[in-house]
Design a binder for these strands. Sequence first.
DNA 1: CTGAAAGCGCTTACAG
DNA 2: CTGAAAGCGCTTACAG
Lengths: 323, 323
Amino acid sequence: MSVSTVSKALNDNPLISALTKERVKKLAKEWNYIPNEAARHFKQSKSYTLGVIVPDLLDQFYVLAVNGIEKVASKKNYNVIVSQTHEDADIEEKLIENMIKNRVDGAIITVSKNTKNVERFQRLTYAGIPFVFFARYFSEQEYDYVSTDNVGGAKKAVEYLLKRGHKRIAHLMGPSFLKTSIQRYNGYVDALMKYKVSFDPALVEEVDLSPEQTYAAVRRLMQLDNPPTAFFTFKNYISLDVIKILKQEFSQQLEKTEVVGFGNLPLIQYLDYKPIAAIDENSFRMGEKAAELIFENIEHNDKELEEERPAQHMRIPCRLIMY
Amino acid sequence: MSVSTVSKALNDNPLISALTKERVKKLAKEWNYIPNEAARHFKQSKSYTLGVIVPDLLDQFYVLAVNGIEKVASKKNYNVIVSQTHEDADIEEKLIENMIKNRVDGAIITVSKNTKNVERFQRLTYAGIPFVFFARYFSEQEYDYVSTDNVGGAKKAVEYLLKRGHKRIAHLMGPSFLKTSIQRYNGYVDALMKYKVSFDPALVEEVDLSPEQTYAAVRRLMQLDNPPTAFFTFKNYISLDVIKILKQEFSQQLEKTEVVGFGNLPLIQYLDYKPIAAIDENSFRMGEKAAELIFENIEHNDKELEEERPAQHMRIPCRLIMY
DNA sequence: CTGAAAGCGCTTACAG
DNA sequence: CTGAAAGCGCTTACAG
């Protein structure tokens, strides 16, 4: 029997007779034959692999995202290769090069926070590899991306604090060169306006996510003549640092100061003093959506249509979780 | 110029003249040529890929291990493909099948806690893929593995409690079908003997890592006529659950009850009541060692020597971290 | 030093 | 329905 017949039989090609298929499959099982996927992929000029680049898997936000991506990918029999930049722009460049070398069929990328130029992403486009930006995105470029509904989530968080009677709500915002930070800030301002609470620029502090900057910002805010009674933070780790420093240096105000931020972490249940609520970004769902977008792209490419596919921008709704 | 010459030039083959190499490399750069790694691997019958199977990346222990593996692998220009079983034995079987299909050059595997038979691992051997067991290992089989020094670590933890004056130290041990659990239990017993503190079987409870079982075990222990004044736990999450239930139901004893367990987690710094110490298993180092072992195996295979390589068993020392 | 040829393990258009 | 042949993009033994 020829290799071509065996190949067709194993792939359930309708041209092959039922009897032949049966015999082939029986022997394949008996001999423990497992087809060489690498050879198949090579022949088909498809890797059936998605490349994923995230900053750090110690941050469970990204692990959940990867899980969402994997759920969608495994349904399509795709492999997922995950790598981490640790926020290093040079590593990011190498990882992208590596994805091109390995001819991934598509990529999902969270840009490192230190990435300055967009050239590396264009190389993916030159190489014909579709990709979507995940969570963080890159200035004005016309690329696909999936993000949380930053404005809506921030509004929900701040409205919750307003409804609980707070008038002086501080915002610890993220680095202003990230659009994400600006959008959450905008949501904060929107909520204040909606509730006709005056906006006080002295209550907004920009931090770089390091504990030190958060501590310093909280110290400045708490020493205002009219200090905040609540904090809305850019990210859960900032919330935890806020509570830590309040406990250490402003323990009088600790009980009456309420904190809400982006990011719902499992570890929070073990805390004694914890944020009163958090915005759950639903990163699992974000991951699923990003993978779906990539597959739409891959299928669009496979069809070799002339028409360009317009850049997609998906915002995943988020929920307020009360602890 | 022929493809063979180009190939040799790009690979710095010494047979090629310096001038030719230069010209080839210049043009490659100019034309943005990036070699197809998949084709190279296929030709070489090597995937330059390590397969890693862990239970769950939400557990940072495994993320650190993966980071260690990647550090070693990237030095050898190897890719790492990580997948999770979520403790599901059927998924584990599929992932192993997938690794064989994709012809990984080696595998690092933490068996799921529900794995009953060893047949799936033998398939790797049949396929000529070397592998090492990581952290958890599998009964009497003669396979390579890398683990923490479970006995030594447990002794350190319990000795620390003994030195602090505790005489009644409870042990919440892991599932007894895991050798890891037995070894940590043995370390506990060893330490008691060394310090001539009598062993009381009533102070040992086996749990399955679920909060419910831990709560129940703590309730039983605390209601003894002579309850424990300290806990030595199988794993950090158990420590946290112990503290949680003490806080809720035995708050009188909370202050004077001390807890030590395996596993050093970053989140612990945010807790108000926390374990007084933990055993740091150094999973990053474990990951490095596992990868090194795999590469030794791969190189041994490549040499096609007749002699069998004896199964290796590496125990990585662990440290006591005081909070 | 350079190049023609074979081959890695498959799939697929084509011929029979 | 089955099989011979070409080819995916490289590397490498071999000839020149």
